[in-house]
Design a protein around this nucleic acid. Structure first.
Length: 426
DNA sequence: TCTGGGGTCCTAGGACCC
DNA sequence: TCTGGGGTCCTAGGACCC
């Protein structure tokens, strides 16, 4: 049996842990640039139907009128809280798949099926005690059923947020309660197809021929069909594969025309992705740079372009990658537009250290490896970007993301630790 | 005025190879 | 008139997820 543990409105819950006065109060968390709503706790959801990714400005009145507390996203805090939740799960099973920042699949096959409900409750209460984060637990024979049981558990108003699919009746009532679009792995397109085929709920889907699922929804559909019918097709992935591409693309806080500023933002992002690349001990053979205006704007002239540059030799050096990226940026930049976003993607990643040279190439004598290592060391000791390339500049305020409501990084920065007691006691 | 960012998996079709 | 059969690798685009 497999459990799916999912944190309740995770980002909002993280914020509430350190602001106990917000307990039972509506809280939302905003995307980068404070643009959209990306998480809302149940109190906030009860006030107003908030579609995910709703632009804030459209419902600002409602938020203000109801005194909803808004937070800018604070990923440093959320990642650290996530790690604490995941560490706690290890107590219950050695086989854990971290599916996303706020959910994990856990193998429970070493428990007797009669204990599973109790184990589910224990997982829930232990995580709450260790981290302050409330979770829901779904337990079933397959991943898809566990995922859906989890959702079901959270929906039950009177329940304990733990649902175990341990009988055929429970499986059927679970599936009957889920509309096609609520099936994990079924998006808009497939939901429409299912409805056309006469499915009113997930149970109807499992009663179609498996061949239909295969034909209409490829092998993914067939796996889903089988998983819902209690036959496991998706393995637990307990080891994370190295990423196949690493990229970043963030909107500017403001619209930019000045090439110099865009260049600085681009350099900053290259440094970020190169850092991630070195952390997973890979090197990239290709770099893509893209530049775009704000496609929502009706007033601005639009321009989008990208360029992909191949490297003669895979590298993870920030210096080399920056040189090439900026060369690309220069080629796609056109003056006279108000740009909103620049992005960098690294592709064709290979393990660092086993880099294949071209037939007529000589190894570039470890490039600037020593220098890079020293810079990484200094930055890990004294803080991100203490040492950086001059191309990153010092004008971050003129392009960086807007985060007006960011909470302190309570768990990772000494200066931002939570203070308990009267302010004057310091 | 203001609209996120980072991923995975699968398939069809092109371009090759022997 | 008649034009094989078995592959691999790569990419773009679709669909989906958090």
């Amino acid at each position: 049996m497999i459990a799916l543990i999912d944190c309740n409105s995770f980002y909002a819950s993280c914020e509430q842990v350190f602001r106990p006065e917000l307990k039972n109060k509506p809280v939302v968390v905003l995307s980068n640039n404070d643009g959209c709503i990306i998480a809302a706790n149940k109190e906030a959801k009860a006030l107003v139907h908030i579609p995910m990714f709703e632009p804030v400005f459209k419902i600002k009145n409602i938020l203000d009128a109801n005194k909803v507390t808004c937070f800018s996203s604070n990923y440093t805090l959320y990642s650290d809280m996530s790690r604490r939740v995941m560490d706690t799960l290890q107590q219950f099973s050695p086989l854990v798949e971290e599916y996303s920042i706020d959910e994990s699949f856990v193998d429970l096959s070493h428990y007797d099926s009669s204990e599973l409900r109790q184990i589910g409750l224990e997982i829930k209460s232990t995580i709450l005690r260790h981290t302050g984060i409330p979770v829901g637990v779904g337990i079933a024979k397959t991943k898809v059923l566990a995922k859906m049981a989890n959702k079901f558990a959270k929906k039950m108003t009177c329940g304990t947020a733990v649902y175990v699919v341990d009988s055929e009746e429970r499986r059927q009532s679970l599936l009957r309660s889920a509309k096609p679009k609520d099936i994990w792995g079924i998006g808009k397109k497939h939901a429409l197809r299912l409805e056309k085929a006469g499915c009113k709920n997930a149970l109807d889907f499992t009663n179609l021929e498996v061949a239909w699922a295969r034909k209409e929804m490829t092998v993914i559909g067939e796996r889903l069909w089988r998983e819902l019918n209690n036959s496991p097709c998706l393995d637990l992935k307990t080891q994370t594969d190295p990423k196949k591409g690493i990229g970043t693309a963030k909107s500017f806080g403001y619209k930019l025309e000045d090439f110099g500023l865009i260049e600085e933002a681009c350099s900053y992002y290259v440094a970020e992705v190169a850092d991630l690349l070195r952390q997973q001990k890979s090197a990239a053979s290709q770099i893509e740079v893209f530049l775009t205006t704000n496609y929502h704007s009706e007033f601005d002239n639009q321009y989008h372009n990208k360029i992909i540059l191949s490297l003669d030799q895979p590298t993870n050096s920030t210096i080399t990658l920056t040189q090439i990226a900026l060369k690309g940026l220069r080629r796609i930049y056109r003056p006279g537009y108000r740009y909103k976003k620049v992005g960098v993607n690294l592709f064709h990643l290979v393990p660092d250290g086993t880099i294949q040279l071209g037939l007529f190439e000589q190894s570039k004598k470890s490039e600037d490896k020593g220098l890079t290592k020293t810079i990484d060391l200094l930055n890990s000791k004294f803080g991100k970007n203490k040492i950086k390339l001059a191309t990153v500049g010092n004008r971050e305020k003129q392009w960086a993301l807007i985060k007006e409501h960011r909470s302190p990084r309570y768990t990772t920065q000494w200066e931002e630790l939570l203070t308990v007691g009267k302010p004057n006691d310091k």
